[in-house]
Design a protein around this nucleic acid. Structure first.
Length: 274
DNA sequence: CGTAGACCCTGCGCGC
DNA sequence: TGCGCGCAGGGTCTAC
């Protein structure tokens, strides 16, 4: 369950349910994620603590517990974090489960194992290597045309790859990079050196609005992450170009094409993106 | 230094 | 029906 909108909707949903609940037990069932789960640290920093609040940095979900520790979860490509009844059977790829007071558990399932789960003691979060090199958040007002233009100065390479560079701005994943470029009619292969100030501003606005629109849409189409089978997670938003190759561009009618950049698929309309 | 490509891993859908 | 292939929304590392 990757892109930022899913993580943000998940955060909002869990923020209504988890604060005040106590983590009765921490079960590491299968430690093999991108980095091995550390059962000892997870237990010592989380077990017996109450959950205080949920935050997000980039696509990392941050679950703060009393005493200042934080459980950090990244869902990678295929991770799902769901709140389920305690008596639901353990499923394949259930790597981590937090048994909560009451009768529920919060479980992390991740077949492809690109996800992460680790715990940090207080105050070390921004120093942690996972966060140290991250760029700005895309939803706040830090992201504007001047910032992107300054970051792109002296760089080459295509705009699509640049938008997905987490050292510049976090959270613009493969879907929303294509969607944002379609909104501003910029071809994904256009060099960052050939983008003017006004277009940088439109790009910044498009990146933010593409993400926030998806969050709004996801928040309405998906309002419950605690369904019985634990399959909630992805939500489908209306996409103009992503995955639409062969179909007609909703703006100009030309056929949407698919290309590969940096080993990722990009989708664009050859009629109205230049 | 920045950039391009390989790579990590499993599951699914498609074409044959 | 069965099988092999390509592909998947994440990030990181290495080689140039």
């Amino acid at each position: 369950m990757p892109e930022l909108p899913e993580v943000e909707v998940l955060r909002l949903s869990l923020a209504r349910r988890l604060p005040g609940r106590q983590i009765a037990r921490v079960d590491v069932r299968s430690p093999a994620l991108r980095e091995p789960l550390d059962r000892k640290v997870l237990r010592s920093l989380l077990a017996g603590r109450s959950i205080e609040r949920l935050r997000r940095r980039a696509k990392y979900l941050l679950i703060d517990v009393e005493g200042g520790s934080t459980l950090v979860i990244h869902l990678g490509m295929s991770g799902r974090l769901t709140l389920i009844d305690r008596d639901q059977p353990v499923v394949a790829h259930e790597h981590l489960a937090l048994q909560l007071d009451g009768d529920q558990r919060l479980r992390l399932v991740d077949p492809r194992r690109f996800g992460l789960a680790f715990a940090l003691p207080s105050a070390t979060l921004e120093d942690d290597r996972h966060f140290a090199h991250l760029g700005i958040e895309p939803l706040g007002d830090e992201l504007d045309g001047a910032y992107l233009r300054a970051q792109a100065r002296g760089r080459r390479g295509p705009i699509k790859t640049f938008l997905m560079d987490g050292g510049v701005v976090v959270g613009v994943g493969n879907i929303y990079a294509s969607e944002a470029l379609w909104r501003v009619r910029v071809h994904p292969r256009r060099s960052v050196a050939r983008i003017g100030a006004a277009t940088w501003q439109r790009l910044a606005d498009a990146a933010r609005s593409t993400l926030s629109d998806a969050i709004a849409e996801g928040g309405t189409t998906l309002n419950d992450f605690s369904d019985g089978d634990g399959n909630a997670g992805y939500f489908q938003v209306s996409l103009a170009v992503y995955g639409q190759d062969g179909k007609a561009c909703p703006r100009c009618g030309r056929t949407i094409r698919k290309i590969v950049q940096a080993n990722r698929s990009s989708f664009y309309c050859p009629g109205c993106q230049h």
